[in-house]
Each structure stands twice: as C-alpha cells, then as structure tokens.
Design a binder for these strands. Structure first.
Length: 430
RNA sequence: GACCCUGUCGUCUAGCCUGGUCUAGGACAAGAGCUUUUCAAGCUCUCGACACGGGUUCAAAUCCCGUCAGGGUCACCA
C-alpha cells in the first residue's frame, strides 16, 4: 500500500511551493490507490502558530486535497526521545553538555558512501565524511527536523517521500538515521523548485506566494492546480488543459521534470480564463456576492440573483481573474458609470447631442426592448444619419459604461435597461 | 568556498532512456492582420531555442568527457 505524506511547518501560510509539493504527493497517492497523510511539523514552538495551521488546512481543502490521516509532531515528542535513547544505548549517539549543563543528543556520523536512487533524478551519491555529526534532540528537549522526520516517516509507514529539491542534501543524513534505527528505507523523489521571475526562489518580492492570495485574487483552484501541474509535468500530447481527474489517470512520477520552473502569471491568467469560460455561472455568482457586497454594489439579503447570473454569463468568457468582474462590470451596479478620463477624451469631446438624443428616442420608442431590436434601431439610425456605425458605437459605449472596452454594445444596452441607458445617453446630449 | 542538482524559443514544455522520421513540435507572451462594435474574447500569420567546446558514430538535441552558467544545501529553522 502506497502511503505518502505532506509535512508543512506552520510557520507561515501554505505557499505556492508547498501547494505544488502537496499536489504531487496527492496525485501520486490517488494514482496508486494509496493514502495521503498530512503531518504538521510544529516542533519549533516559537515560530509555529495555530493560525497558520488553520490557514494551511483551509488552503489544502480549497485545492481539493483530502487527507486520510493527520498528525502533529508536537504530540509525539516521547517517540523521538525513545528512539534517541535507543541510539544512545546502541552507542551510535552521544550526549553533549552545554555550558549551562543542558544535554543534547548527537548522532555520530559514520564514514561511508550513501547512494540514493531518486525516482525523478536517478542515482545520487554522497560522501558522509563531508557531513558533520547531527543533533537529534536539542538541549531544550525538542527533536531536530531531520530526526523527527525520519522517526515519523518510518512509524507512519511512509513508502514514498516526495518533496522539493531543497531537501536533496537532507536525504543522506536521513538515510543514515533510517539505517541506524533499523528502519526500512522509503523511495525518494525530489521535485524541481519553482522560481520567481528574478531567477531566485519564489518570494514575496517577486509576487504573491500564498495559495490563499491566489484564491483572493480570483483564481479558480482547478486553474491553479492545472498550472502548477504543467510547471513540471506534461500529459505528453501537447495539451495544456488537464483536469485533476485526468492527471490522476495519466500521472507517472518518472515523467516529472528535473528542471526548475519559473512561475509565470501570464500563463496562469490564460489558464484561469479557460476555466472561467466553462465554469458554472451559479458557482461564480456565489463567489462574487461577497465581493460585490464589499463594494456596496449589492446587498446580499435582497438582490436580483437572476440578473447577476446574466451579467456573469456576459463577462465570464473574457475575465482573466474572477475578481476582475467587480471592476469591469461596475457600471451595471452604479447609478452613474465611473468615467475613464482617457475614454471620455477620445470619444465624448465632440458634440453628439443630436445623435445621442435621436438614439435615446429610438430606444424609448421600442415596443420590444431586446438585443435584436436594439441593434436594428441603432443600425437604422446611423443609416439615416449617413454615418459609420462605429462613429456612434464607441461614444455610446463610453457614455453608458465609462470604458472603451467591454461586452458587445447592444447586449450592454439590453442588460442596462431602457431607462438607465436613456438617462446616461442624455447626460451627454446638451 | 565545499558538496549536490539542472541546462531545448523571453516563459512552460514535447523530443533524450531505445542516435536517423527534428531544416526541433505545442502552449503562454510579444508583433502583424482579420473579426467592417471595442478587447482584455475569437480566428490567422510572424518572430523565436538544442549553453559552449571536444569526442564516439555513416549519422548526436539525443551517448561520453570537459568548460561555463543558473539553482540548492551546508543551523541545537523546518
């Protein structure tokens, strides 16, 4: 039975790199019908915070990763102590006293060559003479990372350790501990790191790092997962859009790339837009309600949900991020559109009183106020006036929306309604 | 600095294991055009890469060696 684990430290939010490690562990467990175990590595009492634990669990759920078992290292200190004592008795470790008289337990590193057969990178060899003796239990009684990690992975029967590249140099240290404790070795697989656009480690300087930030920005979890997947794995048939279900079916850890990848928002935006297009408007509307309420565009207790749904359908194919809806569709919720100065300058400086008045009148006279008839009356008008359609379309769009870009004009007029459209047009017809 | 990992278009990648089908394919971005209603949507086209040097071979992106470059790790943090 395959058992893998994701072992975050609650000293910060779940970040992109952690999310990606969780993704590959979860993916591997699902593809092998195995178990996905979550272990909170909270041995550092100073830096570990309950709020980070909550945040990490929440983000993992948002990404769709359900864990089969959950452990906290802070509840397992006696296990580490017990195994350290075992090594002490066996003569494989020794005690070191600090000046204040506190005792730490140190592992005596033997001289040997250590070989790792990494599932992604192949064979890697290390020389233990380059590794100094390792602290097992610190003088404050808490275990070190490498020690707690080995004890837990062994006791929790972890079969495959899938983690970031930055742990490669921990691997020989851990392997020596497995051997000293008499535990069976798991398989190792080291994922390439994700880099920021500056070439270094992904950091807050180069953009958002927390998974929850991406949720707040309006990325769908399916899209973020798809993008993370593509950063170091490909389905092999030139496809860019791969659902997580398909990935479970196609995934083979041997096909994971060795090269570190740069996190590129542009492509994430594109993928997110692809998912937004096909997303259920009901679901999108649900997520939009609190955002619209924040802006006082709606009141969640009494608003026209059917109308919101229509607007979501109108915009969803062109949004890179769901949250963009709030700004792009603002003119549907405000009494007056927020006028973009450049747009006004470009399309509403010449006097169009006659044309706008006439169009407002035509709209008023429409018996059947629908998209087809709105467009027909507009086309009729510009034909009579002998002007090009676009000469009037652009100014009308700016008058109605305050923007030069947006959905098709006649749809905008239809959803805005007769009265609001007329009022906004007449404002520019002095 | 030592050790370890990695090097295909600006970015993500396919191809590499099992050399020839690769004048290196796809996607994002960028540029141009079309869509005679905009674009941040759609369609079409263009630009653009095997890090470098040597070797093996009839033949190398693919195998070997070296160089260089980038990254990671060297804590009583995890």
């Amino acid at each position: 039975m395959v058992r893998v684990r994701f072992a975050p430290s609650p000293t910060g939010n779940l970040h992109i790199g952690g999310g990606r490690t969780a993704l590959f562990n979860w993916l591997f467990s699902q593809s092998q019908n195995g178990k996905f175990i979550l272990r909170i590595e909270d041995t550092d009492k100073e830096r570990s915070k309950k709020e980070f634990v909550d945040e990490i669990l929440y983000s993992l759920k948002w990404l769709g990763f359900n864990w089969d078992e959950l452990y906290y290292q802070s509840e397992r200190f006696e296990r580490y102590r017990m195994h350290a004592d075992k090594l002490l008795k066996a003569g494989l470790a020794y005690i070191e006293k600090s000046p204040e008289g506190k005792e730490a337990i140190i592992y005596k590193v033997p001289e040997k060559k250590i070989k790792v057969n990494d599932l992604i990178r192949g064979e890697i060899e290390f020389d233990s003479t380059l590794i100094k003796d390792q602290v097992l239990i610190k003088s404050d009684g808490t275990p070190t990372y490498n020690f707690a990690c080995v004890v837990d992975d062994a006791e929790m029967n972890i079969t495959h350790i899938i983690r970031g590249d930055d742990h490669i140099s921990n691997t020989p240290k851990q392997i020596m501990l497995y051997e000293a404790l008499g535990f069976a070795l798991p398989d190792f697989a080291h994922l390439p790191l994700i880099m920021g656009v500056d070439g270094g480690r992904l950091s807050k300087r180069t953009g958002a790092t927390a998974i929850s930030d991406y949720r707040k920005m309006g990325y769908l979890s399916e899209a973020l997962l798809n993008y993370l997947l593509l950063l170091s794995w490909a389905p092999g048939d030139n496809r860019e859009l791969v659902s997580i279900q398909e990935a479970v079916r196609l995934f083979d850890i041997k096909n994971v790339n060795k090269t570190s990848a740069t996190f590129d928002l542009k492509k994430l935006d594109w993928i997110n837009n692809q998912y937004l297009k096909d997303a259920d408007p009901e679901k999108l509307a649900d997520e939009l309600v609190p955002l619209l309420e924040d802006k006082h565009y709606i009141n969640k207790d009494h608003f026209d949900r059917g109308y919101l749904l229509l607007l979501v359908k109108l915009f969803q194919a062109r949004l890179p991020r769901l949250n963009d809806f709030v700004d792009w569709a603002d003119f549907f919720f405000l009494d007056e559109p927020v006028m973009d100065p450049a747009a006004q300058e470009k399309y509403l400086t010449q006097d169009l009183s006659k044309e706008l008045n006439l169009f407002a009148q035509r709209l008023d006279n429409l018996q059947c106020f629908d998209i087809v008839n709105i467009e027909a009356s507009f086309r009729e008008l510009v034909a009579e006036l002998g002007i090009e359609a676009k000469k009037l379309i652009h100014p009308v769009r700016v008058a109605l929306t305050g923007k030069t870009i947006g959905p098709g004009l006649f749809e905008v007029i239809y959803y805005l309604g007769k009265e609001r459209s007329k009022r906004r047009l007449l404002k520019w017809a002095k």
